[in-house]
């Protein structure tokens, strides 16, 4: 079985985001970029499926300008067998990405598509379910456990208030939550080797896809910060203030 993993390049999760002076967008100039952490989990799961003999090929795909090749090389260093770069000069939104990925699915016919549950920049959680809709595949979002038994996939999902287990036939789309696994680090020899490996390239303009963003970003703002309040000296004072000042208990 072939596993397709979608990879997104995002700002490193340790970097504090700045705004452009005119508030037209965030300012990513010179910001450190990295693979979206949830995509790392998706990739790790694919590599583990291969190590267990369930998958025989792991294909990493990313959409964007030339810079996303950096994350595709990381993906190969972490165990992806092939990397596919769908090139485009302007960023795509979730629907655009899902349409591109649906085209890739048509060409690659994977048995399983793994994506992160959300990217830590737009925080939308949309691309996985959108891809599932466009390819008429079943979907399991927010996966914390994946079991494959022949043609059937059982996924435990993180839902509000607990866990839910679904069963579906393959091919399917799964988006990965935090607890699914703990991604490995790439080893130096693998990183060096991945630098020399070929990356397949596909021009988005040749796919005949309408990827016009469905939303226009009007402005960005920093939310009003909370101010630090008072220090209390004892549990008694805390209870007193919560009762008589804040009136919340």
């Amino acid at each position: 079985m072939k596993v397709l993993v979608a990879i997104k390049r995002v700002i490193d999760h340790n970097v504090r985001v700045r705004l452009r002076e005119d508030h037209s967008d965030v300012d990513l100039t010179h910001a450190k970029m990295a693979m979206n952490p949830f995509c790392e989990i998706a990739l790790e799961e694919a590599v583990r499926l291969k190590e267990q003999g369930i998958a025989d090929e792991v294909v990493a795909v990313s959409i964007g300008d030339k810079s996303v090749q950096e994350q595709l090389r990381t993906a190969m260093a972490l165990g992806a067998d092939r990397a596919l770069h769908v090139s485009c000069d302007t960023p795509v939104d979730s629907l655009g990405a899902a349409r591109v990925l649906a085209e890739v699915v048509k060409r690659e016919s994977p048995g399983l598509v793994l994506l992160g549950k959300q990217s830590i920049d737009s925080d939308s959680s949309q691309t996985g379910p959108m891809l599932a809709a466009l390819t008429q595949m079943p979907q399991a979002t927010f996966a914390s456990k994946i079991t494959i038994d022949g043609e059937r996939l059982e996924v435990t999902r993180e839902i509000d208030g607990g866990l839910e287990t679904l069963s579906m036939s393959l091919p399917a789309v799964v988006t990965t939550d935090l607890r699914l696994n703990e991604p490995r680090y790439a080893k130096l020899p693998a990183i060096m080797k991945a630098k020399k490996r070929p990356i397949e390239s596909l021009d988005m303009n040749m796919l005949g896809i309408d990827a016009t963003p469905r939303q226009e970003l009007l402005r960005v703002d920093i939310p009003r910060e909370r101010q630090a309040g008072v220090r209390v000296d004892s549990v008694d004072e805390l209870i007193d203030r919560l009762k008589n000042e804040a009136k919340v208990i």
Partner: peptide, 9 residues
């Protein structure tokens, strides 16, 4: 967006 550190309109 960005974990609530930015608000997008």
């Amino acid at each position: 967006i960005y974990a609530g550190s930015v608000l997008a309109t």
